Computed example of a mutant assay.
Amino acid sequence: MTILCLSFLFLINTGGKTSTAMLPAILLLAWVFEKVRFLRIPIVIGGVGAFNIFAIGAAVFRPLGDFINELGIDATFTNRADIWRFAVSELADRPLTGYGFKGFWQTSELVHS
């Protein structure tokens, strides 16, 4: 309980409106995760899936990005959308191995642009 109270105090003092507003939902989700065992796998898989759909999908699929913008959320997620668009466009070149650790940033397109 001490950790929860101190974390809440820290969160309030950061001034993050979105994080503070999400706190009740996160606490409820954590409680459900802890108490309802059969929902653990769907919560984890659904959470990862939903994050990928919104984070990557908003960058790649214009209608999803427009929908997120209409909700008042920056669909570029602080310009990470450009990185996802580049990565998806280059996926055909290296579908199995990718670019490797730090290799993405050393491509000629990024170095010379």
Score class of each variant (00 low, 15 high):
Cys5Trp: 12
Arg85Val: 13
Ala81Phe: 07
Gly15Arg: 06
Leu4Trp: 10
Pro63Trp: 10
Arg40Phe: 06
Ile56Trp: 05
Gly103His: 09
Phe61Arg: 10
Thr76Ala: 09
Phe8Asp: 09
Gly15Glu: 06
Gly49Tyr: 01
Gln106Asn: 10
Asp66Pro: 08
Trp105Arg: 06
Asn69Cys: 09
Gly57Arg: 08
Lys35Pro: 03
Gly16His: 04
Phe86Leu: 15
Leu11Met: 14
Glu34His: 14
Leu28Met: 13
Asn79Phe: 09
Arg94Ile: 08
Leu39Lys: 05
Arg80Lys: 07
Asn13Val: 08
Phe8Arg: 06
Phe86Pro: 02
Pro42His: 05
Thr107Phe: 04
Pro24Cys: 00
Val111Pro: 02
Leu9Lys: 08
Leu28Val: 14
Leu27Phe: 11
Thr78Trp: 12
Leu64Ala: 11
Ala55Arg: 03
Leu64Val: 13
Gly72Leu: 09
Thr14His: 05
Ile68His: 04
Phe51Arg: 00
Gly46Phe: 03
Glu34Thr: 14
Tyr99Ala: 05
Gly98Thr: 02
Glu90Met: 10
Gly47Thr: 00
Gly16Ile: 00
Thr14Asn: 07
Gly15Leu: 02
Met1Gly: 11
Lys102Trp: 06
Leu110Tyr: 04
Gly49Val: 00
Leu39His: 04
Ser7Ala: 15
Ala58Asp: 07
Gly103Lys: 11
Ser89Asn: 14
Glu109Pro: 04
Ser89His: 12
Arg85Leu: 14
Arg80Ser: 11
Val36Pro: 05
Gly65Asn: 10
Thr107Tyr: 01
Val111His: 03
Val36Trp: 08
Gly103Ile: 04
Leu4Met: 08
Asp82Arg: 02
Thr78Pro: 00
Asp93Ala: 13
Arg80Pro: 00
Phe67Cys: 07
Pro24Tyr: 00
Pro95Asn: 08
Leu110Ala: 05
Ser19Tyr: 01
Gly72Trp: 06
Phe10Ser: 14
Thr2Pro: 00
His112Arg: 12
Glu70Tyr: 11
Ala81Asp: 15
Arg37Tyr: 06
Ile68Phe: 14
Arg37Met: 05
Ala58Val: 11
Val44Lys: 01
Val60Thr: 15
Val48Ala: 08
Asp74Gln: 10
Ile3Pro: 00
Leu27Lys: 03
Thr18Asn: 07
Thr14Lys: 05
Val32Asp: 05
Ala87Ser: 12
Ile68Gly: 04
Val36Asn: 07
Phe77Val: 04
Arg37Trp: 03
Leu96Phe: 13
Phe54Trp: 05
Asn13Ser: 15
Arg94Leu: 10
Val60Phe: 15
Lys102Ala: 07
Gly49Cys: 04
Ile73His: 14
Ile41Phe: 08
Ile68Ser: 06
Gly15Asp: 08
Phe51Tyr: 04
Gly65Lys: 10
Lys17Asp: 06
Thr18His: 04
Ile73Gln: 12
Val48Met: 07
Phe33Ala: 06
Val48Lys: 00
Thr97Ser: 08
Phe77Pro: 02
Ser89Lys: 14
Gly47Glu: 00
Ile56Leu: 03
Gly16Val: 02
Gly16Met: 02
Asn69Val: 03
Gly65Ile: 03
Glu34Ala: 14
Pro63Asp: 07
Ala92Trp: 13
Asn79Val: 04
Ile41Gln: 03
Ile45Cys: 06
Ala25Thr: 02
Leu110Val: 10
Thr76Lys: 07
Ala58Leu: 07
Phe86Gln: 12
Lys102Arg: 06
His112Leu: 13
Ala75Cys: 13
Ile26Thr: 04
Ala50Asp: 00
Val60Gly: 11
Trp84Glu: 05
Trp105Val: 06
Gly46Trp: 03
Phe77Gly: 02
Pro24Asn: 00
